[in-house]
Design a protein around this nucleic acid. Sequence first.
DNA 1: TCTTGACTTGGACTACAGTCCAGGTTGTAC
DNA 2: GTACAACCTGGACTGTAGTCCAAGTCAAGA
Lengths: 120, 120
Amino acid sequence: MTIGEMARRTGLTESKLRYYEKKGLIHVARDGGGRRSYDEGDVEWVAFLCRLKETGMLLRDIWRYAQLRDRGRSTMPERLAMLETHRGYVAEQQRKWAGHLKKLEDKITFYQAEISHSET
Amino acid sequence: MTIGEMARRTGLTESKLRYYEKKGLIHVARDGGGRRSYDEGDVEWVAFLCRLKETGMLLRDIWRYAQLRDRGRSTMPERLAMLETHRGYVAEQQRKWAGHLKKLEDKITFYQAEISHSET
DNA sequence: TCTTGACTTGGACTACAGTCCAGGTTGTAC
DNA sequence: GTACAACCTGGACTGTAGTCCAAGTCAAGA
């Protein structure tokens, strides 16, 4: 798969794919002409990498995870530990957003009351 | 209230308080010696500003909100509209984090199974 | 009066995550 | 064999949100 196809598959831009590679998050094979050649395994890894990123993991931590992954199955317990730590973070985020939503709704209710009061 | 007291009250650093002022998000009175002098109204506004920021509103949008606020009660409907738009965003974030948590838990379950399989 | 510590300013610097660009290469279609 | 799109590289540039620093000011206490 070329970088263009990969971009379409993953929803990332080509720039991002090159950037993540430069940062050591993805290792990409090359064809005879020196062009990037992605496979299905890369698609899966990029999808997971994106999920980690969307959940607020910094690229440098994803890089640590990628390093462990490169070292094979023996690092699975370490990777599991990273994911468990991250789960705690994500669970807290979820609670936080729920709280934010509640407070924002209170504020909106207050504004609505103020405005309808002004109109009378 | 001096900037140091204000920092303690709001949990922000002095740097941030100066930075937000420089960006036009807060208007702070000065004492005779040219020092910042905050009041309770400032504390409340900063607390609300922080909530907007924590929920992902960019400083330039908070600035727009602050501009409306400066113009008085007549801008309440506009502010309400901003908050309602933002509520949609926050609600979506909450759903997103719930989804992320679910997927991450699936991955963790998978890893746990893999690891216990290796051990047998 | 002198020291101390909290404060003032503008501007330079940082971290993070990209994005863009010039100049060059490769592979396919006509 | 040439036009063309898609690709390559390194490095400069961007936006967002700060953080830090030098040089100076101000007020209270010894």
